[in-house]
Amino acid sequence: MSINVLFFARYSEAVGLDSLEMEGNFATVDAVRQALAGDPGFEVLNEASLMCARNQELCALDEPLQAGDEVAFFPPVTGG
């Protein structure tokens, strides 16, 4: 399956990317996070305060995934 992964704000700067395409079998958002976080360049994804979204809706890390989903990782939001 193919998953489109997006990064925002400080995370985007830390990993040096706005987005990437992941190929593999990912049951949950956390499976994507773990697959990336093993790489030193993505260790920001181990932060406890990480937020995530699936298909542009906030979700928990155990959110199930389907092929073609858009997953986003970002630090706590600071608007307003």
Partner: peptide
Amino acid sequence: YLKTRAPFWKK
């Protein structure tokens, strides 16, 4: 809710 759930980030 905007402060905690809307994706905006200030630099």
